[in-house]
């Protein structure tokens, strides 16, 4: 008689099972790598799932050109260290039009540099399955999404017409042009992610740890002055504050939180007493109660 698996062991096995099913059922899979903590866990699980083989698919990073500099450095180091293939895609048309969060607003910026760019990359490489690190506990409409989420040839998600998903019998078949978005971390919570990072000693970007950083405060959001593209208001001077980030995205759209957590136990301790959800720091989620559902229908991850 064996002893039952623990909660984290069960989650790990489930994610590995999902990854292997995708590998076996799709022609040309890719793993979306956003450099954040969830992506770090997903990558770690992929290393486990196919060992002693390396993950038999490339990673894809959709670079909006507004990511924190530290994220890009971390990405390049990590990929080199693991010896994996990375595709970096930037929406060149967007760059030529000078699209950015300040000139065009967060919504247009995200649409063009993230959602559009992602579709371009998936089309260009004809990927028929793409792993994403989204979790069901992040947001209400995500809670209703399948592990294998079917997208039509226009990359659209139809919440009312999802494939039934029973037991561990995932149906990854698609016709030419159609694709699957696959979420191996569906059943993980934010706390599970942190516990796993701690238990497995998974490298994450330094931005998650508290440090003195140059900050401006706007509408209650603490913005890191990551480069000189951040337009300063009349008389606005960055001040040094001890902050860390709970999630990572485009630096002008991601709010920091004041914190003294300089290591993992510190982060987890703060999390346990936290009274706001992690997406609170994300500007794009506040565009309306159903905004995530809407964005996902349009092809957002």
């Amino acid at each position: 008689m064996g002893k039952p698996l623990t909660h984290l062991e069960r989650l790990e096995s489930e994610s590995i099972h999902i990854m292997r099913e995708v590998m076996a059922e799709s022609e040309n899979p890719v793993m979306l790598y956003s450099i954040g903590k969830d992506s770090s866990v997903m990558l770690h699980l992929a290393m486990k799932a196919f060992y002693p083989s390396k993950p038999p698919f490339p990673l894809l990073h959709v670079d909006t050109t507004w990511k924190f500099k530290e994220m890009i450095r971390f990405r390049d180091d990590r990929i080199k260290e693991l010896g994996l293939e990375l595709i970096v895609h930037i929406n060149q048309a967007g760059v030529e039009q000078g699209v950015g969060p300040f000139s065009h607003g967060s919504q247009v910026h995200t649409d063009i540099m993230k959602t559009e760019a992602l579709k371009q990359a998936l089309d260009a490489h004809k990927f028929d399955a793409a792993f994403g690190g989204a979790r069901r506990d992040e947001e209400k409409s995500r809670a209703k999404e399948r592990v294998f989420s079917f997208r039509n040839a226009q990359h659209r998600w139809d919440p009312k017409n999802q494939r039934p998903e029973l037991w561990q019998l995932y149906n990854g078949r698609v016709r030419p042009g159609e694709s699957m978005r696959v979420f191996p971390l569906s059943n993980w919570t934010e706390l599970d992610i942190w516990q796993y990072i701690y238990q497995q000693d998974i490298p994450i970007v330094g931005l998650y740890f508290a440090k003195n950083r140059p900050i401006v405060e706007r509408d209650g959001m603490l913005i890191l002055v990551d480069d000189d593209r951040l337009p300063m208001a009349e008389g606005e001077i960055p001040e040094t504050r001890m902050v860390r980030f709970r999630t990572l995205g485009c630096y002008p759209l991601t709010g920091a939180m004041e914190s003294h957590a300089t290591d993992l136990p510190g982060i987890i301790e703060e999390m346990l007493v936290a009274r706001t959800s992690e997406r609170e720091g994300r500007a794009i989620d506040h565009d309306g109660a159903s905004s995530m559902e809407k964005k996902k229908q349009d092809g957002y991850f």
Binding site: R136, D137, S141, A143, K144, P159, Q162, N187, A289
Partner: peptide, 24 residues
């Protein structure tokens, strides 16, 4: 309203799809 995640569900006041929730 906390668990009915889809817009159509909130509008119609019914649960259409399976939703997964986590607590400890």
């Amino acid at each position: 309203l906390l668990v009915d995640g889809l817009a159509a569900e909130r509008e119609q006041g019914i649960t259409i799809d399976v939703a997964y929730r986590y607590f400890a």
